[in-house]
Design a protein around this nucleic acid. Structure first.
Length: 202
DNA sequence: GTGATGATTTAA
DNA sequence: TAAATCATCACT
């Protein structure tokens, strides 16, 4: 566990990090750091759980390459943020993947809190470390991410992905079916860090 | 215009 | 186990 032991030494992920197929990126995002620099402070978390959504996958908002106003950013360049409202009350944060025009993304499902934990507690109105970022809606709230950041290029402050020596230690990735969907529910497109206590569910 | 549908969270 | 809550999208 690495929470709050951070003399933050971050290297922002370069644009070519996103030049791979979606499932590869979903796996490669594990262990990386999501950073948000806000006016109320900086927050950061280590990605411990992701899900891939593919263009030929019925659970994907852009299934079959269908472009709508909501999904437009999924067809933009890879490495941008796709943020949308679910269930009328929570937001989900995704990283757009695939070549421009493809319509794929990786949902970030859980983070291990790393920096700015007190601000996360305020944002979430929740004290338990394990309940701060252990779900896609929770982490958006904890990180202070809003829909205004939809379409943000994640290679620019104030919202970006990074590498760090901290949290980059060896781990095993587990692959399972995805959570909370009915269509495409049998596809092995969920990735998480084995034994992490910060994932959304076993 | 209308209605069904969620890539969820929380509280009971 | 169920309620909360609303933008989105397809169209009885």
């Amino acid at each position: 566990m690495i929470a709050e032991k951070f003399a933050l030494e971050l290297n922002m992920l370069p644009p070519d990090f996103y030049a791979h197929e979606t499932t590869v990126i979903a796996r490669a995002l594990l262990g990386r750091i999501l950073v948000h620099e806000t006016s109320r402070g900086t927050v950061a978390g280590r990605i411990v759980e992701t899900e891939a959504y593919l263009t030929d996958d019925p659970a994907c908002h852009a299934y079959g390459g269908k472009k709508t106003p909501r999904t437009a950013v999924m067809f933009g360049p890879p490495g941008t943020a796709y943020i949308y409202l679910v269930y009328g009350m929570h937001h989900c944060f995704n990283v757009v993947t695939g070549p421009e025009g493809t319509g794929e993304a990786v949902l970030i499902r859980a983070l291990e809190p790393v920096y700015g934990i007190e601000l996360m507690r305020v944002n979430r109105n929740q004290s338990s470390l394990h309940n701060l970022c252990s779900g896609p809606g929770k982490l958006v709230s904890a990180m202070g991410i809003t829909q205004a950041l939809n379409g943000w290029a994640l290679i620019e402050p104030t919202l970006y992905l990074a590498d760090s020596s901290v949290g980059a230690e060896e781990f095993s990735a587990v692959i399972t079916t995805r959570i909370g969907i009915s269509k495409g529910a049998d596809l092995p497109l969920r990735f998480y860090i084995k034994d992490s206590p910060f994932i959304s569910r076993k």
